[in-house]
């Protein structure tokens, strides 16, 4: 993802070695063991979905990879550098993170552009720098919010705020993107924009790890799925079938459309607790 115009260039700068890796990773928060013995390896250019029920440890695994929660045992590597022992030496400027947030707002007003600009900083850069504004606008444009750059966050819908957070990560032009439930609770247009964006990033060779609750529109783009249960990896490979009770004829859940869009006739109402 070096330049926006040359869609054929790839971000694969790590021909050997995994972009993201976890080895016998254990995360303990207080007395609770959130993750135990987790092994994970994401190769350059892969799009890997991290699945599992609520509380299975998906978000914690992602935050452990980013060094945001302490690692009790084992290790995690990002771009070949240990997060546990050398966190400050990891090339974080190549990593984009989209956290899961109910809202992007803080105690102060801020425009979408200001939030995206803050995504361009890293260890050696405390200012967006020259051309930063253009890059931030470009990132906002890629999530379909090019015309809302001056809007205050509080004026944007939940889905639009989520897209601002995605743009904030994209403004870094990352080679690795970690997304924590980027499409949970967002409106349909936001989901469609996101699916197109992800396909675009995938085509350019950006490595993606994405925590999902439902696959939805992005299912065709996903190379591999890792399923967590009770803090352990229980599946690593092709997309798993839905759990019993979720695979019924009338149960849409995540497999509604395989690429082709169908107008949904009104038939069944399914409730799924968030």
């Amino acid at each position: 993802m070096r330049t926006r115009s040359s869609a054929t260039t790839t971000g694969r700068t790590e021909p050997t070695g995994d972009v993201l890796a976890a080895h016998a990773l254990r995360v303990q928060l207080g007395s609770a063991t959130i993750l135990r013995g987790v092994d994970l390896a994401v190769s350059p250019g892969e799009v890997v979905a991290l699945l599992g029920a609520n509380g299975s440890g998906k978000s914690t695994l992602m935050r452990a990879l980013l060094g945001l929660v302490p690692i009790s045992d084992g290790d995690a590597h990002v771009l070949g550098t240990s997060v546990r022992t050398q966190r400050t030496r990891v090339a974080w400027e190549r990593v984009g993170y989209v956290p899961q947030r109910v809202t992007a707002t803080s105690g102060m007003p801020a425009t979408a552009l200001e939030v995206v600009l803050s995504g361009m900083l890293h260890r050696h850069r405390f200012h967006p720098g020259r051309g930063g504004r253009a890059r931030a606008l470009e990132a906002l444009d890629s999530v379909g919010l090019g015309d809302r750059s001056r809007a205050g966050l509080h004026e944007l819908s939940g889905g639009q705020q989520q897209r601002v957070l995605i743009a904030r990560a994209l403004a870094r032009r990352p080679d690795v993107l970690l997304l924590d439930e980027p499409v949970s609770g967002v409106d349909r247009p936001s989901q469609e924009t996101f699916a197109r964006l992800l396909a675009d990033l995938h085509a350019r060779g950006v490595t993606v790890l994405i925590v999902l609750h439902e696959l939805g529109l992005i299912e065709p783009i996903i190379d591999r799925a890792v399923v967590l249960r009770h803090g352990r990896v229980v599946h690593d490979g092709a997309l798993p079938a839905p759990a019993p009770g979720h695979e019924g004829e009338d149960h849409d859940h995540v497999h509604a459309e395989h690429g082709e869009h169908v107008e949904h006739p009104e038939k069944t109402i399914q409730r799924s607790l968030p």
Partner: peptide, 22 residues
Amino acid sequence: GLRTALFAVCQDEEFARSTGLP
């Protein structure tokens, strides 16, 4: 002078840590 960096830290501390900012 450090407005953007301080903004990043105060707006979303966890994200700021993920960017490598001190």
